[in-house]
Nucleic acid binder design. Structure first.
Lengths: 231, 231
DNA sequence: GAATTTATTAACGTATGCATTGTCAACAGC
DNA sequence: GCTGTTGACAATGCATACGTTAATAAATTC
């Protein structure tokens, strides 16, 4: 969670040093400025973040709990790589939980605002794909998935999904240009939105589950084929 | 799920003070020696654990990430209560993930040792129930569920399930004597074991999902009916 | 008497310092 | 030349100290 089980408290201005370090380091990892496998010492990170080791260590504890780094006493910390096996684990969990999120959203319905946001994400995915802007597509995809769990009525589910989604983020980014064009994904998302609109919880669950399962399998086999042992 | 996402590293002798504090406090919370709603200061906990505030705070960060406590600056830490709504959230997640664990176990099969342990748990549940020893029954039930995720081949799933199972632990214990006798549970577990033996992954998934769903609903409505706003 | 301001205090966030311990390297023995 | 040992070093785990800040109580004013 962290998130481990708790994540970035969105937006808030980060009052404590510990919180600032946590966000900065997580951001740096997600953006590959601290690449997988890289190796750091508490001292250099503390200096980098312009604080003492004490608050920094608390940030590291959280990052370790969330699976981003490994703290090896006397060896410093290491940014954990993502193996195909890791991705399989992550997608197996996301498949279950996101499908249930879609089901719950369909069951409870959405506020007009939330529905508009979801549809905007889908449209943005189409626009980005048509324009060949894969980064924009990935951002919209992410917005769609996060929007779904945001409104599923289960805080813990939301936190867990966001955590694992973040863990998979680097691998997704690095395979963006290697994977087939995600035209299927866009169709899938549209179908899920339709099921939600109709309030068909069963259908939403099934559609989203299948969507997640297929894209997960695609990504895992892509990583395996490429022989990417770590990302 | 800091387990945020990582949990008790079983057995190991707890090298660091921080680790010792984490284990001791978690144990105390699970056993209700630090009851829900209770309120502590860093100073008293540090004294209690015979260490300074520095390692203690690292333990608190982990416990907060895992959802056991809340850290309120200047207000001390508070052991979080479990509401019926919390239980609903937790069981919704466990239902999905444990069903998938059962499915994977059925698909991959178990070593003879692991299968023996699983069957031993089921038999112990029967014995305990026949003898009216509900605590022993709960222990065996827990052993069964943990055994399943232990061998499902997904470390992250195992960690997440164990974290939430631990979160629900207190509520389960307090309702042990209020709930109907778990004869159905024992039958369900037996059926799941049979499906695993036959390698019927689909069936194992469906059986375990239904088992978890029903026992979750029972527990949530029990808590609601009792008007237990917090445990 | 109530409300607002001020003063006090104590809990916390962070910095710093120290003792511990594992690592790495140099050296000696084989 | 290789292996085992010793020693220095450096990163860490933890304790301690300090400044900040927010909660509480007191005091003053309306």
């Amino acid at each position: 969670m962290s998130e481990t089980i708790r994540g970035l408290k969105d937006k808030e201005p980060a009052r404590s040093s510990s919180e600032r370090a946590y966000r900065a380091l997580k951001q740096a990892i997600l953006e590959n400025r601290m690449p997988a496998g890289a190796h750091f010492l508490e001292n250099e990170l503390a200096e980098q973040q312009q604080m003492s080791r004490t608050p920094l260590r608390e940030a590291l504890v959280r990052l370790e709990n969330e699976g981003f780094i490994e703290i090896r006493p006397r060896h410093g910390i290491r940014v954990l790589p993502i193996s195909p096996e890791d991705m399989r684990e992550i997608y197996q969990i996301l498949t279950d939980l996101e499908a249930t999120a879609a089901e719950q959203v369909a069951r409870k319905g959405l506020t007009p605002d939330a529905m508009a946001e979801l549809e905007a994400s889908v449209e943005e995915m189409d626009r980005a794909l048509a324009g060949g802007d894969l980064m924009a597509w990935a951002r919209a995809d992410e917005a769609f998935h996060k929007g779904l769990v945001e409104h599923c009525g289960n805080q813990r589910l939301r936190t867990v999904v966001n955590t694992f989604w973040d863990q998979a983020h680097r691998a997704r980014m690095q395979t963006l240009r290697l994977r087939p064009l995600p035209t299927q994904s866009n169709q899938d998302h549209r179908a899920v939105v339709d099921a939600i609109k109709q309030g068909d919880a069963q259908l939403a669950h099934a559609l989203h589950r299948r969507h997640r399962q297929l894209s997960g399998e695609m990504l895992v086999s892509l990583l395996s084929d490429l022989g990417l042992r770590q990302l």
